[in-house]
Amino acid sequence: MLKHWWKILGALLVLYTLIAGFMIPLKPGIQEVTPTNAQAGDNLSLAITGYNSHFKDAKEIKAWLKYDSTHYIVGENIRDSTQTLLFVDFKIPTPLPIQNESRRMTLILTNEVDGYSLLPDAVEVVPMGIDTIMGQWGNTIGGLHEVKGTTFPYRNILYETIRNLFFHVPLWFAMIILFFFSTIYGIIYLILGNSRNDHMVLSLNQVGILYGILGLVTGAIWANWTWGEPWSGDVKQNMSAVAILVYLAYLVLRNAFDDYEQQARYSAVYNIFAFVALIPLLFVLPRLYDSLHPGNGGNPGFGGEDLDNTMRMVFYPAIIGWTLLGAWMAQLARRYMALKHAALEKDVDF
C-alpha cells in the first residue's frame, strides 16, 4: 500500500479537481443587454440580463454607462423584474464629448450581493444632428461593491466552460511532463542500457500520446461552442497536432526494426529529437503568430484576469493529479512490456 501512495494521491487530486471544478460557482456577471444601440439624446431604457445575479435580493443597485474615463451616465429608475432581469434608464446627453463619433459604451453594474461587474461594448451610441441638452455627464463613479467569495471568473462567451481549464489544459501540461521524463529515461538507456529504461520511454510516450490526442479532442469540443468551430486552424492547434504526429512517428519507428537492441537504441535517439522539436512547436511558434489561445501572439501566458487565485487552487492540483494518473497508466503498460520481454527471453513461443 505504501509504495502506491502516488497513485492514491493522483486519484484523490483528480477527484478533488472534478468536485471543486464543477461545484464552485461562477462570479455573477452581465450576460447581455437590449437594445444594443442608442442615439444621443435618447432616454434609453436598458434591459439587463444577469448571470448568477441576485437583482431581487440586492438593496442598492447602481449602474453607469461609461463613454470614456471622464464621462459617465448615471442609470436612473432602476427596477428589478427577476433575480436576473433588471431595467435601467439612461438619459444620454447630447452633444457627445467627441462629436460626430459613435462609440460603444461599457456598462458598469454594482450591488452589495453580487459585487460589481462590467459588460464592455454594451451599447453603441450614435450622435444626433441637433443638440438637445438633456441628461448630464458625470466624471467619476463611486461606491463599487467588492464581494469576497470563492468563485471562478465570469467571462462572456466562455460562461461555465471556463471550467475546462481544469480538464483540457492540465492534459497538455501532464503530456509535456510525461514526455520530459521519457526523454530522461531515453538518455539513461543510451548510457546504461537495460530494457527497463527503454520500456519506461515507450510506456511514457504511449500515455503522453493518449493525453495529446485527448487534449486535441477536448480542445475541439471546447472550441466548437466558444470559437464557433472545432478546428479553426489556430496556430497552437496545428502545432500541437504536428507534435502528436512527431511522437506517433516514434511508435512507427520502433516497428521498423526487428532486432530489439536496435529498436530500443534508435528510437531512444529519435525520442530526444522529438522532445527537442516539441519545445518550439508548443512554446515558441504559437507565440510568433496571432492565436485564439490565451497567452499567444505576444501576450503573457496566464494573466491575472484569466487565472485568478481560486482557479489556481484547482488548476495546479489538476496538473499534478493528471500527471500522476498518467504515470500510473504508464506503469501498467511498462509492467506488461517487462512481462512480455521476460517471456521472450525464456523462449516462450509467441
Binding site: L18, T161, R163, I221
Partner: peptide, 10 residues
C-alpha cells in the same frame, strides 16, 4: 451557461 460542454470534455 454551456455547462454541458464541460461535461462532454470530461
Amino acid at each position: 451557461g454551456k455547462i454541458y460542454v464541460v461535461l462532454a470534455t470530461v
